[in-house]
């Protein structure tokens, strides 16, 4: 089958996929929700959502061969957008669970050192290096809901940070991968602009 000019949202049983679907459609993308390996592989962009616990997300991801499709797309330079726990699974692991992550990003995810958790609400995101998805978006706020995050990302990845109790990685890009700890689909116009930016790299 020829490459379709449409994106897929990987449906592996994690969370509210609908809001991501609606927001991606709003920025002009044709969106298919799928748990099928082939379709997730051949789409021009793959969105990996994720809410809930790291361990159960990893298990559910493996159950639909989501780990394989993410690795395969990464190696073949095919765009991926990870959201929230869908970003965390790209790391080597999480303090939340004994399950291993995909280790595409070498660092680990830790519990945020903040007195009140989860970190819920609109927080500012600051670029360390320029990210494609943050093009034209400066010092804006995005909507976060999480208790865990990566403190750093080493290697070639470009990142943006936010702060809640401590600095943490709010967004990262490495090769075909873009990933965000916040929810662009719930971040109003700013979130839609980020999704539009992602659509432009496809």
């Amino acid at each position: 089958m020829k490459e379709r000019n449409a994106i897929s949202i990987l449906d592996y049983g994690s969370g509210n996929i609908r809001s991501a679907q609606r927001a991606l459609e709003r920025v002009g993308l044709e969106v298919e929700v799928t748990s099928d390996f082939e379709r997730a592989w051949e789409s021009s962009g793959l969105v990996v959502p994720g809410v809930g616990a790291f361990g159960s997300c990893m298990n559910q991801l493996r159950a639909v061969r989501g780990d394989e499709v993410i690795r395969a797309r990464f190696k073949s330079d095919r765009p991926i957008l990870g959201i929230c726990v869908g970003m965390q699974v790209l790391f080597a692991g999480s303090e939340e669970s004994n399950e291993e992550g995909l280790a595409i990003l070498p660092n680990k995810v830790n519990k945020l050192a903040a007195p009140i958790l989860p970190h819920i609400g609109w927080n500012e995101v600051t670029e360390i290096a320029q990210l494609r998805i943050l093009k034209g978006i400066n010092a804006e706020r995005f909507y976060f809901v999480h208790s865990y995050a990566a403190r750093e990302v080493t290697g070639d990845a470009k990142s943006a940070i936010s702060n809640y109790g401590e600095d943490f990685i709010a967004a990262v890009e490495l090769g075909p991968i873009s990933a965000v700890q916040f929810h662009p689909e719930k971040s109003g116009d700013v979130g839609l602009q980020l999704l539009k930016n992602w659509a432009e790299v496809l």
């Binding site: 970190h119 819920i120 609400g121 609109w122 927080n123 706020r141 702060n163």
Partner: peptide
């Protein structure tokens, strides 16, 4: 840089 108070 910090979390904004939410008005709901």
């Amino acid at each position: 840089m910090s979390l904004a108070t939410r008005i709901i």
